[in-house]
Design a protein around this nucleic acid. Sequence first.
DNA 1: GAGATATACTTGAGTACGCAAACAGGCTAG
DNA 2: CTAGCCTGTTTGCGTACTCAAGTATATCTC
Lengths: 163, 163
Amino acid sequence: MNSQVPSALTAFVRLANAHGAMERAFNQELQAAGRITVTDFEVLRRLADAPDGRMRRIDLAHAVGVTPSGITRLLDGLEASELVGRHHCTQDHRVTYAVITNAGRDVLRATAATHLAGLVALFAERFTQNELNQLVTLLGRLPGADSDLSCPAAAVEPVTVES
Amino acid sequence: MNSQVPSALTAFVRLANAHGAMERAFNQELQAAGRITVTDFEVLRRLADAPDGRMRRIDLAHAVGVTPSGITRLLDGLEASELVGRHHCTQDHRVTYAVITNAGRDVLRATAATHLAGLVALFAERFTQNELNQLVTLLGRLPGADSDLSCPAAAVEPVTVES
DNA sequence: GAGATATACTTGAGTACGCAAACAGGCTAG
DNA sequence: CTAGCCTGTTTGCGTACTCAAGTATATCTC
């Protein structure tokens, strides 16, 4: 194992371990607070921030970093708990929107308080604001980066949630 | 969503997305090269680097960031493909070691070349050596950090792999 | 306007974990 | 020496995805 390798490997391993540990911790926290997972939380957050509280499923999938089939199953659960609804696009019948419901916003509010506090505390304990910013920009260069698509193709038609 | 929060949240989201994207990419690469996953690779690598090519299962679990039950199932697979064997500790009958086999070392060699090259390339494309070091130290402060336990409680007794 | 191709989404089957509980062996205190 | 606790491991059961393949719908080309 030659001598150029180690830092790249270490970076990857640390990334993986940190992600695993944090995800596990936050999942428990969120499970306790509102019976949702970290990914569910991300979905609700994205929807709540999007215009009209809705997004195309595929954009949502991309935003939270799962595959199209992943978002289907994920939303299956959230639809079953009535935290999001679906809304068919009248212009393009291929696409359907995921729409956050009032119940969804309630759960988001209820969980956001403790979750975000925990998140902030975790980072505040270990980094100065400066270091945190550095971390964010460095992570942003990695593949799969947020791409923070500010929800294109939304805010087009009136919203009517079904089911 | 108040104004202190965003960088912590962004850090976490980027971490998650980067990890997901990289893991998926490397999994495909490794699957093609040697029918193993990223986690399998990590296990083989750790074992190969450990004295006598063996580690206590629980230390291994911690090192690669899975739970004890996770390591059991993970090693089930590697044992089935004869890439690792097991070795009972004669001093403490609770513990059993995972031992890398010759076949395991072969697979590791075969996959390491391309995998590590890919890893290095990925980082080299995006970061200077300096930035990479920064990233590594910042990530090292996150929970679940490597703790690089240099395999305590190993190198004690003669190794005899069974089945 | 008829294919061909691309996009959005769903479904079937499989996998890689996790948690909680069970169990076995070891350690300590009386 | 025995009762209680701690540690290492496995097992049952559940879940959150993945990939590959299938179905609609849209778009592009001639």
